[in-house]
């Protein structure tokens, strides 16, 4: 993997709280959570640009909803 670069991330209190909660729940550092988010966003973006769709499915409630990603 390529060398790493450092950046400053400006977040609101709520965004920072969400990041900290995710880091805590996933047992990751905040940097690792952001890295995961970038990977997923890139993956979703590329696949949706290729015409695929992303859904959330609730098997119990038998609900399926398309997720719109900007």
């Amino acid at each position: 993997m390529a060398g790493k670069r450092t950046m400053t991330l400006n977040l609101t209190d709520e965004e920072m709280k969400a990041l900290e909660e995710l880091a805590d729940r996933k047992d990751l550092s905040k940097t690792a959570v952001v890295r995961q988010a970038i990977r997923l966003y890139q993956l979703v973006d590329v696949r949706m640009a290729a015409g695929e769709k992303l859904y959330f499915e609730d098997e119990v409630e038998k609900k399926k909803a398309e997720l719109m990603v900007l």
């Binding site: 996933k26 047992d27 995961q36 990977r39 997923l40 993956l43």
Partner: peptide, 14 residues
């Protein structure tokens, strides 16, 4: 990214 543990005690962790 996109897959997580399915069994306890780390269920849901990447």
């Amino acid at each position: 990214a996109g897959h997580s543990t399915r069994t306890p005690p780390d269920k849901g962790k990447p």
